[in-house]
Design a binder for these strands. Sequence first.
DNA 1: GCGGCCTGCTGGTCAGACCAGCTCACTGAC
DNA 2: GTCAGTGAGCTGGTCTGACCAGCAGGCCGC
Lengths: 256, 256
Amino acid sequence: MTGGDADPRVFQRVVDHVERAIAGGELAPGDRLPSERELGERFAIARTSVREALRVLEHAGLIRSRPRDPRGPLVLAPSPGPARRSIATFTSTGGFGLAELVQFRMVADASANLLAARRRTPADLVALERNTARMRAAIDAGYVEFGLADLEFHEIIARAAGNRLVQLYGDVTREAVLGLIQRTILDADDRHTLMLRSVRHHRAVFAAIADRDGPLASRLARETLYAYYAEHVGDDDREIMADLVREVGGRLPDRP
Amino acid sequence: MTGGDADPRVFQRVVDHVERAIAGGELAPGDRLPSERELGERFAIARTSVREALRVLEHAGLIRSRPRDPRGPLVLAPSPGPARRSIATFTSTGGFGLAELVQFRMVADASANLLAARRRTPADLVALERNTARMRAAIDAGYVEFGLADLEFHEIIARAAGNRLVQLYGDVTREAVLGLIQRTILDADDRHTLMLRSVRHHRAVFAAIADRDGPLASRLARETLYAYYAEHVGDDDREIMADLVREVGGRLPDRP
DNA sequence: GCGGCCTGCTGGTCAGACCAGCTCACTGAC
DNA sequence: GTCAGTGAGCTGGTCTGACCAGCAGGCCGC
């Protein structure tokens, strides 16, 4: 599975052992690992090395060890948290440009909208309505707060879509786009116009999802992302974005 | 940024500091961290704690420290590797069912095909052709080898798509689906038929990509995934899958 | 001028120590 | 018999100090 570069460090043995035990079901969430001292004895290694292993496992989100807990390190339930973190690290340091991120967002948001239109519950609609109110209020609160409200809108939809992968990838990518945007484009003073446009867009998406019109919700996502960002990317990337709009039967803004 | 649960452990200070330094550009790939002993002095903590910090940073893919390297731990270039690993952990332990994975694959594969149709280079086509040959040969080599060849086909396309997020997410999800399939469905002895069908499908996708017909390549991906897996999921999920097929103008297999 | 040795450093590992505080079993009161 | 109070025994967090093997670069002898 992993490459041939065997890691000779002793703590790795513990890491591998625990990882396998969790993957194999011998360790279930809520179970406890032996204490550090006992692990050291079992693997015949020093406690310092055990602790390095535990730090790695902890960072991987597999366990958590709390100070002075006599029951030993806790095996955690699987969570998207660590994946989220490492994706965020990658997207923020990997030299991603706007085009690459937005193209992915067109895919992720459209799918989230499509799925959400079918799965949304009344509670989801309530949450979306509450968010719309927050968003309107945020127009005067500044673009940072507005950006967060905007993020929340999409995250509610992603959650409603009922697919944790769509949700995970979408959330991370949206945050990355937002970060990039706030650092680059937002020099214009037509910021206010943009915010109003966003609110209008959200209202349309909300209506489509409430109507259970998935294809429309999907199309709106792609058309809007195109309208927002097409002018900020190169020709090649714009053509790709246009392809993505056309793929779902969307229309491009007429601007020859 | 992170929640309010401040981690009081001393090694966390080092982790945070290095993470920030890398994110802020003060540390670039190829740079060296101070030695463990020196880090300990600077942060006024013991070397054991420094080592825990280094293990975490190493696991996050930010640095690498090699034994007896007098130049100190190396700052690594951003890589999708850690993200891949943690996503794989999540998808394999998170209790994902076939439906959730396949629905995401429909999104990811279709997008990869669409993008690849536009971006593919002659070299990509050569690689795909080579893979087709490998695949044909694998029909007699058993379904494990066949599965790997199938994976490779999609990975070549994902790479050709020129979007690292599409590539990352698609690759991981495909592996998860394959693992799930090989553990569940593959009891039937019509395995051979399935493999032939796969080869046929790949040929069609290859032609579409060679023709630069992105919409067709995208549609083929969704139709085929539907045809393969629709019967193995519940009614609700099948309807979602049908929505995904229709979204790109695809047709459902007539089977009333 | 140049090749080989040697010192000083590195990371990897260990043993042993101290601290603060959570749990649980035991105790005693009701 | 039940329950609140308490203390002992662990736990994880941290530090100190030690030893090892091996890489780099400076030094020395040729």
